[in-house]
Design a protein around this nucleic acid. Structure first.
Ligand SMILES: [Mn+2]
Ligand SMILES: [Mn+2]
Ligand SMILES: [Zn+2]
Ligand SMILES: [Zn+2]
Lengths: 155, 155
DNA sequence: TATTAATTGAAAAAGATTTTCAATTAACTC
DNA sequence: GAGTTAATTGAAAATCTTTTTCAATTAATA
């Protein structure tokens, strides 16, 4: 669990000033279990720190991404930079195409596939992005098997 | 190989009018081996069809995505909707973090992983997004092992 | 050729993100 | 507890990207 205190220490440890604005952003991100847009983060942060500028939120999000403390998730249509906290090292997500809920999973062995792809393509592979898309239990129950948002899209 | 003629037939077959503007967009997309932004596509299309509106390009790209004839790729930082033609059904890509080159691969068996993730999470999984990131052979040779763009980022 | 619904493109609107720059302040030193 | 200083902040403007509107045009069909 990445508390905002731990995040704060990392920030300071890297030589960045720890401002009340930054603390507020850290709290919001550390606490959320969902991915949030910059705008959504801004709205939440404002409740704890009215007067904070949207620019500051953007700058903080950039810093967090640079420090690898957040990662992006990718929605089906629009592809804005949604963010979520990253609990630990390497991880992946499942996203509900209906409600947007995101669940992490960490265990995944792609090494064999990666090896084969690397050999065939000549690439030196350094990372990957893996995200399953589907319907969460709740949405399935709510809308019946399949549900109204079922697109059948394949990535 | 998806020629622009084949694409044109699909478009018409689905009951859409085949305009010179649409033909021009199809040619650009079918010919390119790279992913392109809407803006980049617009620039190229203008050379063959000066006077085409950017809006028309956007509309055509939306149509192609709806018909599942294109798919998006995701760059490391900015996450705009880059597009590339989709040669056939289900597929994935490898992207060079240095030059942006994209290579497809179609063979990948995630069914076992998908099954396990589905059981654990309760999601009904309907699709996935898989993209390896790394350095292509050319960029590796050009810049030495690792290369200057190596970020070590993990998704 | 006439009909008609789909398509186009200019312009405006809406959004998202970045740049600028003067004022503020966290961290450090004395 | 001051004083110093470079980093940080936020208002405003600038940039970009994407969407909406709507009147004019046109591909498809008869
Ligand atoms: Mn994306
Ligand atoms: Mn991973
Ligand atoms: Zn759901
Ligand atoms: Zn390359």
């Amino acid at each position: 669990m990445m508390t905002s205190e731990k995040l704060a220490n990392i920030i300071r440890g890297r030589g960045y000033k720890l401002t009340p604005q930054r603390r507020a952003v850290l709290r919001v991100i550390a606490r959320s279990r969902d991915h949030l847009t910059p705008g959504a983060i801004y709205e939440r942060v404002r409740k704890e720190h009215p007067g904070i500028g949207l620019v500051t939120v953007y700058r903080m999000l950039e810093l967090l991404a640079d420090l690898n403390l957040t990662c992006r998730v990718h929605t089906e249509d629009g592809c804005r930079s949604y963010l979520m906290r990253r609990p630990s090292g390497h991880h992946h997500h499942i996203m509900c195409t209906s409600c947007g809920r995101v669940v992490d999973f960490t265990k995944c062995d792609l090494s064999e596939l990666q090896q084969r792809v690397s050999e065939k393509s000549g690439f030196k592979i350094e990372g990957h992005l893996l995200q399953f898309n589907g319907l969460c239990q709740e949405c399935r129950e709510k809308t019946g098997a399949g549900g109204p948002f079922r697109t059948g899209k394949v990535w």
